[in-house]
Design a binder for these strands. Structure first.
Lengths: 227, 227
DNA sequence: CGGTAATTGTCTAATATTGAACAGAAGGCC
DNA sequence: GGCCTTCTGTTCAATATTAGACAATTACCG
């Protein structure tokens, strides 16, 4: 059912190498936890690559409701929206941890790409994967209920952020119900209830430090069973 | 509020020219109305450019519910998902009218791109716009109600498919409530009700031939007023 | 350490939404 | 013209969801 999108890990390595090699004076910036890299509405024609840390991308709706659009981790790239003519950021990028980023002007980035076919192909693949990913999110929002979406979101978060053990995944990072509600697209109280339920069913656990432990297979099985 | 994504019209022209010039033997296919170009699950590593006609892209959810992801018209490109490693189509492409398409193998397309910087930049812009567009759809699905989404969808459909008159847009193409429900992500009866309401408020009209006439400004104003 | 802020677990009533049904209207086809 | 199919308008009860509220708990900061 839910097709895992293969990560373009190769591209990430290539890109980081290429940046280091090609131009040692590319600027590196440090963004402390909870600080913003850019905000919706900013004029910012930069592309960012994560050296360390985690960045969350979120958009605000008209009524001020926040939507979490994605999380980027080491090796990931973000800010690619500046490739479009629209010079304005549509989303806000916030550091979830102290992060170190490479920052490349869009123009420069384009030069790299046209000078290196391998890099170019990797980047195109990266964009195509983003599109496929978003497409799946749209289908999910249109067709499945919040409980299922929450389950799926937990599995994906685990994949992205978690430490993998044989049959469990441990996310060593506290994720509030509020944040989950912004990922899933529902209200906080509902997330509380669902999480409660998942815990009762033995699909997830909370560690002593309040880290989330996901029982991968059991949760996946549960999701396959429910409508 | 709702930011119109600027179309990369330049790129479309460039692309068509480039294809004609570079390789006159690129295959051209005809797809009759209601026929499919490809289906979800297909192995199809082609990129398509529309010479004439209209193509709708739709995905099926697990329970078989259909979601309309987008409509492509003359000059548009689709099938770019084959750039990702995943060789499988996630969506189905269906001709809404008799259509004529250029079909380029993904590999060949990549060669064009690396040989022509202008084309490359245009294509990257095109992808970035797709991502921004989808991002906006996600935000809308997460935060606003179906009535508003319907209104917005009508305005966008008008922009994409309609004939523009000073204060109205006329879509010379019959769009069923069923299709609208698959765009908006709700049920058919609700679309009926909302359309009824919009008509009563003088925001839209139906022509004698059952074509949709959108009173652009009034509809936009209405949307700006409601929550 | 103490106090403030953030987080969670719970409840509620009000609303939005679904899914299924059915009759009438219109369209397309032979 | 007549039949069959698709589309529309309209119900309705069942369900899902929201938007508050509140207390209890836990983090965080100085």
């Amino acid at each position: 059912m839910s097709e895992p999108i293969p990560p373009s890990d190769l591209f990430k390595e290539q890109l980081l190498n290429s940046l280091r090699r090609a131009n040692p004076r590319i600027s590196t910036i440090r963004v402390p936890k909870h600080n913003r890299v850019y905000s919706a509405g900013d004029q910012d024609k930069m592309i960012y690559i994560i050296e360390s840390g985690q960045i969350k991308l979120a958009a605000l709706s008209r009524e001020g409701r926040e939507c979490l659009l994605g999380i980027r981790i080491v090796g990931d790239l973000f800010g690619e929206s500046c490739l479009s003519e629209l010079g304005t950021r549509l989303e806000t990028a916030t550091a979830m941890e102290n992060s170190i980023l490479k920052r490349v002007p869009c123009e420069t980035f384009l030069k790299y790409l046209s000078s290196d076919t391998l890099l170019l192909n990797g980047f195109l693949q990266y964009l195509a994967e983003r599109i496929a990913e978003q497409q799946q999110v749209i289908v999910d929002l249109m067709t499945i209920n919040s409980e299922y979406r929450l389950g799926k979101a937990l599995l994906q978060l685990g994949d992205k952020l978690g430490k993998k053990y044989p049959s469990t995944i441990r996310i060593e990072h506290r994720i509030s119900h509020e944040e989950l509600s912004q990922i899933v697209g529902t209200t906080r109280p509902r997330i509380s209830e669902f999480m409660q339920k998942f815990r009762a069913l033995g699909l997830i656990e909370m560690s002593a430090e309040h880290f989330l432990i996901i029982k991968k297979n059991r949760l996946a099985d549960y999701l396959a069973r429910v409508t």
